[in-house]
């Protein structure tokens, strides 16, 4: 019992050990997903690219959990990993992509794209660093930090109009996709 109370007090105070652990978690997730994203845009196998995308999407879900957005994390897993990735794999199958290595997936002048993205990353990192030097952001540690109830309340009160607009957009996209891809 005493141990339980001590543990509860510690997790409320957010000790330096917990900060350290959460930072290590973040570092591992960030490294893994950056490496997977780099492999995704450079690999010569379309199916492997989809699997690397899965690693990135799962890491992003973990980042949401660190930030206390567990409903967004669950939706990420359900919609992105469960639906969108499967849809992309269906696209790979229906377009009869070459299974195995394919050496014709990249443009010849890919260094221009590399230059553009490196310059963009430098500018964005510099301006982000200038704007938010060491601003802290609260991370979730306790069950109380999570807020699915508040999210659902907010969707159905403050954001009801965008929510209905999204519903109509999804219906339009569904019908549009069927009409565009139909054989006639």
């Amino acid at each position: 019992m005493t141990a339980l109370i001590l543990f509860a007090q510690q997790s409320v105070e957010l000790t330096s050990t917990e900060q350290w652990v959460i930072n290590v978690f973040f570092g591992v997730i960030a490294l893994v997903s950056t490496a997977a994203a780099l492999k995704m845009v450079t690999t010569d196998n379309v199916v492997h690219a989809a699997l690397y995308l899965l690693i990135v999407l799962a890491s992003v879900a973990a980042i949401y959990v660190i930030l206390g957005a567990e409903f967004a994390a669950a939706t990420q897993v359900l919609v992105y990993i469960g639906a969108i990735l499967v849809l992309l794999l269906f696209g790979v199958m229906l377009t009869r992509a070459k299974l195995g290595a394919d050496d014709d997936l990249n443009h010849e002048q890919r260094w221009i794209g590399g230059l553009v993205s490196v310059v963009m990353l430098a500018v964005m990192s510099f301006s982000l660093w200038e704007a938010f030097e060491d601003t802290k952001v609260p991370t979730a540690l306790n069950p109380d930090d999570f807020n699915t109830g508040a999210v659902s309340e907010s969707i159905f009160t403050d954001y009801i109009v965008p929510f209905e607009a999204i519903s109509v957009l999804l219906l339009a996209a569904l019908i549009g996709a069927v009409v565009v891809a139909r054989r006639d």
């Binding site: 845009v41 553009v116 993205s117 490196v118 963009m120």
Partner: peptide, 10 residues
Amino acid sequence: CIGVYGVLTR
């Protein structure tokens, strides 16, 4: 930026 690289080069 990695995504932008992918869009530009794939």
